[in-house]
Design a protein around this nucleic acid. Structure first.
Lengths: 217, 217
DNA sequence: CAAAGAGGTATACAATCGTCTACCGGCAAT
DNA sequence: ATTGCCGGTAGACGATTGTATACCTCTTTG
């Protein structure tokens, strides 16, 4: 699995790297592959399972780590501090995801490649992973962020588009190291825009009453 | 090029289909390939150029076609009708893109596969294509939609995230025909959310004054 | 009218591929 | 104490691959 990851990250996609090639790079006999996997799809799913759980666990752990969070759970209540929290949360989460991507660029690259790749099995597995991350995020947001008038259904939908958009932002981040700061800003602005939009859609007068302005990032 | 498109759409990605395979499927001698392209990258870029210009032209043409548009350019002015226009525009554009994707599912599938694929050349070409579409959209939006306090810089940034998000919505649309209506609604809601957010970020009082409510899609 | 080039073909070669059959050491369980 | 499985190896197979060289036939250009 390590050999496959290394090979796939540098050159090809998971689907089209050769059985013998992987075995050679792992220092094993080609036939040994069959002792563990029947397909290359099976290998891919196994890799994705490992890396996916690592990713979700990493995100959750860091999200739960209270030291990095500048506000307390008791601050919740009105939409003004809600939007303030949203900004803080966006800043934190964006940095967290992008850091993670940088630390696991091989796994990320290969994984995303399979998201739109030729194998339906891998595609489904990746979509499930993203959906799981979106659900984690929703749960977390609902627990911490109190924006009134935003239903759980709206929240999961917002989380989904955020996760998917972060796929692209992460790609930019990996490919253009010189634009790191700018990409972070763009991602934060995007997330904030969604929350402002969601609040404006349900209770625009709350925004006016609070006197809060959209932050210049 | 036709042979490559057909083969890539059904099974593999562009990068890993064989020279001989394509030649066979096209009814040509393997060596004939070299008369036209040096690389497979070169083939890919050529295909993307053709299909990309077709896509952009198709989108532009349909966007310019005034018959499908329920409002006139003279209706512009205040943010209330601006948001109304945004809704109409979102509905139209989403339907337009998703129709196009359905009609060109092979080309779309292959193209998106290259967006995150192993070839840097193809990746760059696809990113440029998406950027071009985003610029087209921005130009169009700025010309038709008069939402005050939204700068061109904000508009292009919004267009970019819309285009990227539509990549995912299009994938859903192709893969889940039974959810067509729902996916359309989600895409429209997403776009509207961004515009409401952008307006709320700059001029929340205008939303309150207009008395407009976020539409239940 | 000749030269050049563009598009296509035939043959050949070494390399790589996935997979099949057979063999082997170690460890665990009966 | 032996049976059986698990992980690994060896060798061989036919198929397919990318590419090189050489030859052919139109069309265009000088």
């Amino acid at each position: 699995m390590e050999a496959a990851l290394e090979l796939a990250a540098t050159t090809r996609s998971l689907a089209n790297l050769g059985l013998r090639e992987v075995a050679r790079h792992a220092g094993l006999n080609p036939n040994t592959f069959y002792r563990h996997f029947k397909d290359f799809d099976e290998l891919g799913v196994a890799m994705l399972r490992d890396l996916g759980t690592e990713l979700r666990a990493g995100l959750r752990e860091r999200r739960m780590h209270p030291a990095a969070r500048g506000f307390r759970l008791s601050d919740i209540g009105d939409p003004a501090t809600g939007l303030d929290q949203a900004q803080e949360l966006a800043r934190e989460s964006v940095g967290l995801v992008l850091d993670f991507v940088m630390e696991h660029r091989e796994a990320y690259t290969v994984g995303i490649r399979e998201l739109h790749g030729p194998s339906p099995v891998m595609r489904k597995a990746m979509q499930d992973l993203l959906e799981g991350i979106a659900r984690d995020m929703t749960e977390d947001l609902l627990g911490v962020l109190k924006l009134p008038a935003i239903t759980p259904e709206e929240m999961i939908e917002i989380a989904r588009v955020i996760v998917r958009q972060m796929v692209f932002f992460s790609m930019d981040y990996l490919e253009q190291p010189e634009r790191h700061a700018q990409i972070k800003r763009q991602a934060e602005r995007f997330i904030l825009l969604l929350f402002w939009g969601a609040l404006a859609a349900r209770a625009p007068e709350l925004i006016v009453q609070s006197g809060l302005r959209f932050p210049e990032l």
